[in-house]
């Protein structure tokens, strides 16, 4: 069933994701940050903390907590300006993102504190919660948070009974039977930390789709790891720039 060749509107194969790229350390002021792009969905994640947690009633004396904020920018949609600020949908996705990331982070060294994860989208074209989770995992590692592994996520699904990986916006609105199943997985253990579904499907299709998703997760994990490794290049940088900038400042002062 899955091997049936279908043509997707953008020419991808059934098991092909859109172009993926990632970069760590894009927001200097944050403790950790990352941008993760899959096709036309771009997620920026910034991590602040561990820091003091307010309101105080949320404090947990046994461990620090993770707090995620998911937000789509008003211009990120298909063209019309969205209503800014939190809404029912973003609150739900903030919660599932938090649940997807919490199993890997260990904040027992930081009682009563919080790690804030802000995820913002400059453009969205389906698969945004998966992109957000991928970006947040890189940003958390970049912030030096103790975590047993990264978390990688991808959307799987089917179009009229054919399993496909990483549905885009047009495919989600496919005229026929369609299902969109975002999954997040801890690569080292294979544990699933996020599994949702939207649409119509059969049990066999879900099992098949998740199996294919697991294979694709490995590719995404590699992109995430490479982004982190790339941030710490192996050459001493910035010496010459600092020298020339400083010399200029000092000579101007003498005048």
């Amino acid at each position: 069933m899955t091997k049936k060749e279908i043509t997707r509107h953008d020419g991808r194969k059934w098991n092909e994701t859109r172009t993926i790229s990632a970069q760590a350390g894009v927001i200097p002021q944050a403790d950790g940050s990352a941008v993760f792009t899959i096709g036309n969905s771009t997620a920026y994640a910034a991590v602040y903390g561990p820091q003091e947690l307010h309101p105080r009633f949320m404090q947990n004396p046994k461990t620090g907590i993770l707090r995620c904020h998911y937000n789509m920018l008003p211009f990120s949609g298909p063209g019309s300006r969205g209503r800014p600020g939190p809404n029912r949908r973003s609150q739900e996705i903030s919660m599932v993102t938090q649940n997807a990331l919490s199993p890997v982070v260990d904040l027992t060294d930081y009682p009563n504190s919080v790690v804030d994860v802000h995820i913002e989208f400059t453009q969205t074209d389906a698969g945004s919660r998966c992109a957000g989770i991928c970006a947040a995992a890189i940003a958390l590692a970049d912030a030096g948070i103790v975590m047993k592994d990264l978390v990688s996520a991808v959307a799987v699904g089917h179009l009229d009974g054919t399993v496909v990986i990483d549905l885009d916006g047009e495919e989600e609105h496919f005229d026929g039977e369609v299902a969109d199943i975002p999954i997040a997985i801890i690569p080292s253990t294979g544990e699933v930390t996020l599994l949702q579904m939207d649409g119509l499907t059969q049990p066999e299709l879900i099992i098949e789709a998740i199996k294919r998703g697991r294979e694709e997760i490995e590719v995404i994990t590699k992109v995430q790891r490479d982004a982190l490794l790339k941030k710490f290049s192996s050459e001493i940088t910035g010496v010459q720039e600092a020298k020339t900038a400083l010399k200029k400042i000092l000579s101007e002062e003498k005048k």
Partner: peptide, 11 residues
């Protein structure tokens, strides 16, 4: 891995 290599969580 080697001594002084940079590693990421889960590696």
């Amino acid at each position: 891995i080697q001594e002084r290599q940079i590693v990421v969580p889960g590696q």
